[in-house]
Design a protein around this nucleic acid. Structure first.
Length: 868
DNA sequence: CGGATCGAC
DNA sequence: CTATGTCGATCCG
């Protein structure tokens, strides 16, 4: 979708206008120039509550910037130098692993909603239109954009900018249909393509390109759609001309004033059959073919980008928009050239706030981003500056990851002021009802309910509560949401709560495996607790039964249950892979237990268990209704007490709960069982796990040493260093493969925790050190010298290449705090970027290892575990 | 964990 | 009159 964000304003600090992101305006045509547009927007905006709030937010950003600048002032030249060295080591490594072998395509439908509406209503074709409502526009056509009418602008302001503007209401059904048609085409080129919303998608056409080489020619020939409606014959001809020219500028659908292109150039480019186009085998040709087919099928145009990774592809698709395409050839040089003068704001994941913060540091273009990498590493969080670095090197995801399971579901509504508690509660219930319905469609239950409120001053608040048992029905959700709402109403009493928006979200879903077991187990844990006095009934005002639904069964002893719950929990803490494997492994045998448990559940009458717990050890009431707190307390109480029935714990049990503490005895027990289990049952299978020597302490570190590993051959290294070596070896092997200029005989070792200054390269006996930058063999085996050489090389090579000159601030500062206060924007597209490289990347230091994705590869996981 | 923020569509 | 809705991620306390 077209965003208004892309344009930055050169005039510094008129916050709102900047936010409105006015585009440069083509002179000559009707429309407004930038100045007029800004003026009108200001007039419409000034004095509004909305504007006041925008100013406030702006102030907050300014404060953040100020803080950052203060921090910057304290940085010493020495610190900066050190940072430079560290960062540049990473640069080498990233550079080493640069992967240019994939061909990623980003397809972006031009002014999608507006284009669809124009297609379906010819009357609109000549007019400036926008899709949305008086309060908010989703997109506008290119004609309307000349007036400054843009997505995310309220309709009433758009009307002032462009009084003739036609606002068409949204019709998602229609867009969905068209989107589906487009996706059918895309799927032919990459069955695993990744749609991003209705109008965008990423494709990995690497495989397609290979196969295509062997295709007969007629498989690359496509015919014009002659039977299309609304005089598109001419459009088709236009298209043909455009495609043959390989140069496209405007679309008849999008521009009322589009000129007819000449139509007799067919022969110029392999058009051997009348009414058809033959496409070649290159990436460009493939994408032209895709766009051609999209237009033939839907009468809509698309823009596209072709590049070695998703980030670049996305930026490419923006380049020749609308109805154009652009390719970055898979060469490092080409990538860097593309980035050289590119404003950071064009980068997906860099929004207006990040742009502003970076601008305060004098960073506007990607090459400046690279220049300042050392500084950024001191001012921003690890995640952020690494992201920045990746951006400035042009690195991104080279494969398309399927998006994982959903993490939350929410619904929210904006309305004219509601200020009576009664209305607010009923609205809240309504939202809960809607949400419950959607949740049930996907069979989801979550533990956390979040209430979102926006008051009439546009201030947003969220209030969350996590409950013990997963919720999914209207009543369950409402029970929680209502409390949150009540608290907020009380907090402003005796004034009314004046809101313009309310939203409800449920998150904290169970994973597939958890779904199977947890419900019963957890609730059984709670129920049994109640039986022996863990939980006590507390009379409450009204519908406060948190656990009336999904009641669990009583099990035998409380201790038994508690232990089981705790054990499960910890298995969760070990590693996703590990616990998942285990669960699957035990599936069969545990089913019997579950059945039995379920029966008991059924027998239990609805109860009114409530929020007050009594500790079974000290018998004191616990005020917290947080299971974690409760368990923590019980742990403390129990610490040192002997628990005999540990042996009874069967590994089949699979209850879990979100508690990080549990009885030490159980941990030990669990580890032993695991250990046994692994060797007994897993040998010979694909799965393996290594358990390090069991030390005596009961800390969780022990669990961190259980290292899942897919490769049978490397099972059970005798100690941690062996494990580490294996990891390094694997990575080196991979490295060698990846390295185009082979012969790199250096070994990389992980930076150990705490010793961040340790050398990056470490010599193997008999090895020759080859500089990864200049590729020359180094005589020295002294790592210090070698590292120094690499640093020098870097400064000569990379830095110059990308930035021409190296600017090195040399002021002297004092700096005591290493706290990074600032975050750089990271969005999905962005930060998934590096996993692709990440899985292949070697030599990551422990602290460098990024593992946010649950789907982190095993090797990555191992690294992280190892250095925990 | 909860709350605020950012960013994308 | 009239400034969205939904989701994921990060960071901080």
């Amino acid at each position: 979708m077209d965003n208004l964000k892309k344009v930055s304003d050169s005039s510094c600090n008129d916050g709102l206008l900047l936010r409105m992101g006015l585009n440069d305006n083509k002179a000559g045509m009707q429309g407004l120039d930038k100045e007029k547009i800004n003026k009108i927007i200001m007039e419409a905006t000034k004095g509004s509550k909305f504007y006041e709030n925008e100013l406030k937010k702006d102030q907050q950003v300014n404060q953040r910037i100020e803080k950052m600048m203060q921090l910057k002032e304290k940085i010493t030249a020495q610190q900066l130098l050190k940072a430079q060295v560290q960062v540049d080591k990473l640069v080498i490594e990233l550079e080493q692993n640069r992967n240019l072998s994939s061909t990623i395509v980003h397809i972006d439908m031009d002014a999608f909603y507006a284009a669809v509406e124009m297609r379906d209503n010819p009357e609109l074709k000549e007019k400036p239109i926008a899709v949305g409502s008086m309060s908010m526009l989703s997109t506008s056509n290119y004609h309307a954009r000349r007036f400054g009418v843009r997505a995310a602008m309220p309709g009433f302001i758009a009307k002032r900018l462009c009084p003739h503007l036609t606002i068409v209401p949204l019709n998602f059904e229609k867009y969905g249909k068209v989107s589906k048609e487009v996706r059918e085409i895309l799927a032919e080129y990459d069955p695993n393509f990744m749609p991003m919303g209705l109008d965008e998608a990423y494709l990995n056409i690497t495989e397609h390109l290979e196969e295509r080489l062997n295709w007969p020619e007629d498989r690359r020939r496509f015919f014009f759609n002659t039977e299309s409606t609304t005089g598109t014959d001419k459009d088709c001809v236009n298209m043909s001309a455009k495609f043959n020219e390989g140069e496209v500028s405007s679309s008849p659908v999008l521009f009322e004033d589009s000129t007819s292109l000449m139509d007799d150039e067919h022969e110029q480019r392999g058009l051997s059959v009348e009414n058809s186009v033959l496409f070649g085998t290159s990436a460009e040709e493939v994408v032209k073919e895709i766009r051609f087919r999209i237009e033939q099928k839907t009468q809509l145009t698309a823009s596209a980008g072709i590049a070695p990774n998703t980030m670049l592809a996305k930026m490419c698709s923006d380049r020749n928009k609308p109805n154009g395409q652009y390719r970055i050839s898979p060469e490092r040089r080409a990538v860097l050239d593309f980035l050289k003068h590119l404003p950071i704001r064009k980068v997906p994941g860099i929004g207006k706030v990040t742009e502003k913060m970076l601008k305060a540091l004098g960073i506007v273009t990607c090459s400046e981003l690279y220049q300042q990498r050392a500084l950024l590493s001191l001012l921003f969080s690890e995640v952020s500056w690494r992201n920045f670095l990746g951006i400035s090197l042009g690195l991104g995801s080279t494969h398309l990851e399927k998006d994982g399971e959903r993490k939350s579901m929410s619904t929210e509504r904006t309305f004219s002021e509601i200020n009576t508690a009664e209305d607010q509660y009923s609205l809240c219930r309504e939202l809960c009802r809607d949400l419950a319905q959607e949740l049930q469609k996907e069979g989801l239950k979550g533990k956390t309910v979040t209430l979102k409120l926006k008051n009439v001053n546009f201030e947003v608040k969220t209030r969350a509560s996590t409950v013990l048992s997963s919720v999914s029905t209207e009543e369950e959700i409402f029970t929680v949401a209502k409390d949150l709402l009540g608290t907020e109403i009380d907090s402003v009493a005796p004034h009314p709560l004046r809101i313009r928006l309310m939203g409800v979200r449920v998150s904290g879903f169970l994973t597939e495996e958890e779904k199977k077991y947890q419900q019963k187990s957890i609730t059984s844990f709670l129920k049994s607790g109640k039986e022996i006095g863990y939980l006590r009934l507390q009379p409450e005002k009204s519908n406060q039964e948190y656990f009336t639904k999904n009641s669990g069964a009583p099990h035998r002893g409380s201790f038994f249950d508690q232990k089981r719950a705790a054990r499960q929990l910890n298995s969760e803490n070990i590693s996703p892979d590990e616990s998942r494997g285990k669960q699957l492994f035990h599936d069969e045998r545990s089913s019997a237990n579950i059945v039995e448990e379920t029966k008991k559940v059924a027998d239990l009458p609805n109860s009114n268990v409530c929020k007050i717990f009594t500790c079974p050890v000290c018998f004191e009431k616990q005020s917290s209704n947080n299971l974690e707190e409760l368990n923590k307390h019980i742990d403390e109480c129990l610490n040192g007490t002997c628990v005999k029935d540990t042996v009874e714990i069967s590994k089949n049990d699979s209850s879990r709960e979100n508690t990080s503490n549990f009885l030490p005895q159980f941990k030990t027990e669990w580890v032993d069982k695991c250990q046994k289990n692994e060797t007994d049952q897993l040998s010979g299978t694909d799965q393996s796990a290594s358990v390090s020597d069991s030390s005596t302490d009961n800390s969780t570190e022990k669990f961190a040493q259980i290292i899942p590993d897919k490769s049978p051959r490397e099972r059970q290294p005798s100690n941690l260093s062996d494990i580490a070596r294996n990891v390094c070896m694997k990575q080196c092997l991979f490295h060698k493969q990846m390295s185009q200029d082979n012969e790199d005989h250096f070994d990389k070792t992980e930076d150990k925790e705490g010793s961040s200054s340790s050398c990056f390269f470490e010599a193997k006996e008999d090895s020759v050190l080859v500089c990864p930058v200049c590729n020359s063999e180094q005589k020295t085996t002294n790592l210090m010298s070698f590292n120094r050489h690499v640093d020098i090389c870097l400064n000569k090579g990379l830095i110059q290449e990308l930035t021409e000159k190296q600017d090195f601030p040399t002021k002297t500062y004092n700096m005591e705090s290493s706290n990074r206060v600032f975050s750089g924007g990271l969005s999905k597209g962005q930060q998934c970027t590096n996993p692709s490289q990440g899985t292949k990347r070697s030599g990551l230091t422990a602290s460098q290892s990024i593992s946010k994705k649950p789907k982190a590869s095993n090797s990555k996981h191992t690294i992280k575990m190892f250095f925990k």
